[in-house]
Write a protein that binds this DNA or RNA. Structure first.
Length: 899
RNA sequence: GGACGCGUAGCUCAGUCGGUUGGAGCGCUGCGUUCACAUCGCAGAGGUCACAGGUUCGAGUCCUGUCGCGUCCACCA
């Protein structure tokens, strides 16, 4: 079988992928004969396009899924996408804006129709891209967070939590994004350090001439909502203010003075202005002291009618304008630069406004405790382990989750209000949490719209306008995708899933919440292991992002280098859980490796005679006398296989990839194939080349699925080989008895000898075509035997015509190398530059003496010889013995050359 | 303010249980194209393992501290 000279992934990948897909190799189904292995994909947003983070994340999952499948598990990778409420709504709004259409012009229903249309057209872009990567997802099961089934699960969960008292509605300070015009959860508000100003402002004392209190604030515009000023009771500066009242500048509102130990006397002026409706701390103070909550802003963060002349002004304009007015009035003291953390919307990066608002919340503490226990007890393990602490810290300080969003795209909150009952309610429905059951009058929580009010029979019923946080569907993903709340066979078989592979950014958003939901609704953890991989950054360490323009597009890389190259490169440079700094040139590593494998396979196939293939390597091994290099390469293969299996079990993907790379390239290609060339048509060589190649392809398949399949398909098959795809082949079985440390050590010695001859040839510029004579001087009978047994090998690989082994003295005018207990002479009459050779030997001698000094003093030290383990001491003794021989030989040579 | 990660060759990074003169890829130097592969081969140069202490017979590896870089969390306005 002839292969082209260079591997061309473009020709291969799509064909192979659609072949796999059409044969149904990605599909898994409950099978009582097999153990399940399952992974649910972190569902990418429908607005998403594949970036390097996805490429890394999904390559890791694919490696696991393919590996487990080969190991005989019923291996399920559940794929799907997330409706991504705010993100998608923003994208569709932007695309409508291009046509000059606004969301509110369309109205809710029409707009949602538009979003569905958009989703039909673009929503599966990322799925197509995952296929390009080679992902073996079970596409037949692809789910979407707004599918009927998943939506059903969302409603079910909302109602259950409400009935359990774990969902409530209340007026609290939430993070408000004025651009998206919705509430956000605490996690969706990202803190970033901002260079702001700390403004010092005079608040006059009522009915007094010149008395005033100076407050310090970073947000002067919020003073429009001030109702008090708080100071520390111990603060003597303010002791004289008892029973006095302050006047709010500009608006003239009367402000109480609060004495509260909470106030930090050392910050600013020690006087804190209190704005209960616009600051979480002040909100707390407001509740404590029964203060009025004055909301000063509209939804778009312009000042509302409370602000008098400032009404309609944007919050930041108002800030400046208010400062100006304060200056005019002589109430402004100073502003100083002040760096502080400010929340930003995680979708549009607008500065978030803390704001009092009526929202729905999930009470988290009761959900958190069993989820904490699941991780503490080790039922769920994080890899790397350090994330355990991050998870636990967050869970132990968990705060209630604001789940309502004032947008249109998402799962609408299953709450209905009876207008009649609400109107006649003794208290408003503003705060469902605090009120006993009968005061929740008018609130109907139901999966379907009730025809009439169960209390008064009115049909004037309206659904809550809000939708749920996107993550309120994502947290159900590990079981809702398998059909929950129905008890499907898939759910029973594949849940709990095995491994969750994700990035650190969504531990709180997603991982923690899934653990809570799994335990709450399934009474079982959602997964056993969580593997947290690093973030992909550009070469300067900056996180890759479209807005920064520093992205490397995985699809570009796939078309340039191939999907296997992309996968292999990114895996091999990503140490467990460490961030990865990526430059395009990194992908050459994988491309070159693919090409190397391709050519090695090409060479082997060129020489392969099908009838010579032994049916089973083990059987063949038992009955045949193998040469040292043959035993060595088999041993190395099985050692590598063993190591790789272990690495995959511990999520050390880079180490696994690098071990395969080292074995295939340097051991198999550089040494074994070269060694085998002279006997390439022999049955033993053919069998071993074939077997190692075929098994290596299987070992490599999870990492580089396309090229391994392509070669495997072209490889002649022994008669009993089953199946028609490498995907369905078993993971090779480690044959312990074929691993021989002794053979590996012997081969290492031969390699050293060959390398040192090559080295001398290179140093003395011996042309490659010229064969040389070499004399190896040694007393050691084992060395003599090893070299004699493999004399042809050494001669061929070092290009030696006459090789003499045994007790020999140094021929005059020759180069020398001292290796182990041997001297290797390369006679070079007339070619030797004695000064150069002397310098070379001196350098080597110096190194040896240095090592000897360390060894001697260590071995003389009783502390060492008595306390160190015996095998370590023995090893040192052996090394010393060998080294002293080497030094003696080196000295002789130096003396001779100086003469 | 709290927590975590990183600092090893010119660059980007590995480094298992602590075991004694530390590896890879790229780059660099020299040689090489009788056919598996120049996306290649052979040979080589290149290191005070950030710094300072400590534990140990022995430290790149464990402990403490310092410096530098990065990330996450956090209600000092």
């Amino acid at each position: 079988m002839e292969l082209p000279k260079t591997y061309n992934p473009q020709e291969v990948e799509d064909r192979i992928y659609s072949d796999w897909e059409s044969r149904g190799y990605f599909h898994a189904a409950p099978d009582p004969q097999k153990k399940p292995y399952s992974i649910v994909i972190p569902p990418p947003n429908i607005t998403g396009i594949l970036h390097m983070g996805h490429a890394l994340n999904n390559t890791i999952q694919d490696i696991l899924v393919r590996f487990k499948k080969m190991q005989g598990f019923e291996s399920e990778w559940m794929p799907g996408t997330d409706h991504a409420g705010i993100a998608t709504q923003n994208v569709v709004e932007r695309s409508l804006a291009k046509k000059g259409v606004k969301r509110h012009d369309l109205g809710r229903e029409k707009f949602i129709e538009e979003v569905w249309k958009w989703r039909e057209e673009y929503g599966s872009t990322i799925i197509k891209q995952l296929k390009k990567l080679g992902c073996s997802c079970d596409w037949e099961r692809t789910r979407f967070t707004m599918d009927d089934g998943l939506s059903e699960a969302v409603l079910d969960v909302f109602v259950k939590l409400y009935q359990k008292g774990l969902i409530y509605r209340g007026n609290y300070i939430i993070n408000w994004c004025p651009r998206c015009q919705t509430a956000l959860s605490d996690e969706e508000s990202q803190h970033k350090d901002i260079d702001g100003m700390l403004y010092h402002i005079k608040y006059p004392v009522k009915a007094s001439n010149n008395e005033y209190v100076v407050v310090a604030t970073t947000r002067p515009e919020t003073m429009l909502g001030d109702v008090a000023v708080a100071v520390n009771p111990k603060d003597e500066r303010y002791a004289g203010l008892k029973n006095k009242t302050l006047l709010l500048p500009i608006l003239g509102r009367e402000l109480k003075i609060l004495y509260d130990g909470f106030v930090d006397m050392t910050f600013g002026t020690g006087a804190l202005k209190v704005t209960p409706a616009h600051d979480p701390v002040d909100f707390g103070l407001g509740l404590k002291y029964g203060l009025e909550q004055i909301n000063i802003m509209n939804d778009d963060a312009t000042i509302n009618s409370v602000g008098g002349d400032y009404e309609g002004m944007d919050r930041f304009e108002a800030r400046e304008a208010i400062v100006d007015e304060l200056k005019d009035r002589g109430l402004f003291i100073k502003s100083e630069p002040h760096r502080h953390a400010v929340g930003h919307c995680y979708r549009c990066h607008t500065i978030v406004e803390p704001r009092l608002s009526l929202q729905w919340f999930v009470r988290m503490k009761p959900l958190a405790s069993p989820a904490i226990e699941a991780v503490r007890s080790g039922s769920i393990k994080f890899y790397p382990e350090r994330w355990t602490k991050v998870y636990l810290d967050w869970m132990e300080n968990i705060r209630d989750w604001c789940i309502s969003r004032q947008i249109w795209w998402g799962h609408r909150i299953p709450v209905y209000y009876c207008k009649q009952c609400v109107a006649s309610s003794p208290s408003s429905i503003k705060d469902v949490e605090q009120k006993p059951e009968d005061d929740r009058r008018g609130v109907i929580v139901s999966k379907t719209k009730p025809g009439k009010c169960p209390v008064c029979g009115s049909t004037e019923i309206e659904q809550d306008q809000d939708v749920l946080d996107t993550w309120f569907s994502s947290w159900l993903w590990p079981f809702s995708t398998f059909g929950w709340p129905k008890e499907t066979p898939e759910l029973k078989y594949f849940y709990p899933t095995d491994t969750l592979v994700t990035a650190q950014e969504i531990i709180f958003f997603w991982v923690a919440r899934m653990i809570m939901a799994g335990i709450e609704f399934r009474n079982a953890i959602p997964f056993k292991s969580v593997y947290i991989h690093g973030t992909v950054r550009d070469i300067t360490g900056t996180k890759m992002s479209k807005s920064l323009g520093n992205v490397i597009d995985p699809l570009d890389m796939i078309s340039k280098y191939g999907a296997d190259a992309l996968r292999f490169s990114i895996i091999s440079i990503t140490a467990q859980g460490q961030d990865v700094y990526l430059a395009e040139s990194r992908f050459e590593l994988g491309r070159n490796f693919a090409n190397k494998i391709w050519n090695a396979s090409r060479f082997i196939m060129m020489n392969l005679k099908e009838e010579d293939m032994a049916p089973d390597l083990c059987v063949f091994f038992e009955g045949t006398k193998l040469t040292l290099p043959e035993r060595w390469i088999l041993s190395r293969f099985y050692s590598t296989l063993n190591y790789v299996s272990g690495c995959l079990a511990e999520y050390k993907f880079n180490e696994a990839a690098n071990a395969i790379y080292e074995f295939l390239w340097h051991e198999f290609c550089d040494w074994y194939i070269e060694i085998a060339k002279p006997t390439i048509t022999g049955r033993n060589s053919q069998t071993i080349l074939y077997k190692i190649l075929e098994k290596s392809l299987r070992m490599l398949h999870p990492f580089m699925p396309f090229i391994t399949e392509e070669i495997w398909q072209k490889l002649p098959k022994p008669k009993k080989a089953s199946g028609d795809s490498i995907m369905t082949q078993p993971w090779p079985h480690v044959q312990d008895r074929m691993i021989s440390r002794e053979d590996e050590e012997k081969m290492r010695e031969l390699i050293e000898v060959i390398t040192s001859i090559r080295n001398m040839r290179a140093v003395w510029n011996i042309e490659a075509r010229v064969d040389v004579d070499v004399i190896i001087n040694t007393n050691d009978s084992e060395d003599v035997k090893l070299l004699s047994d493999n004399i042809d090998l050494v001669k061929k690989l070092a290009k030696v015509s006459d090789l003499r082994i045994g007790k020999h003295s140094k021929p005059k005018s020759s180069a020398v190398s001292v290796i182990r207990k041997m001297e290797i002479f390369l006679p070079l009459e007339g070619l030797i530059d004695f000064e150069k050779e002397k310098a070379r030997l001196l350098k080597e001698h110096l190194r040896m003496e240095g090592e000897m000094k360390g060894l001697s003093s260590r071995l003389k030290d009783r502390n060492f010889t008595s306390k160190a383990p015996k095998e370590i001491v023995d090893k040192q003794e052996e090394r010393k013995a060998e080294l002293s021989i080497q030094i003696k030989k080196m000295k002789d040579n130096l003396r001779e050359i100086s003469a």
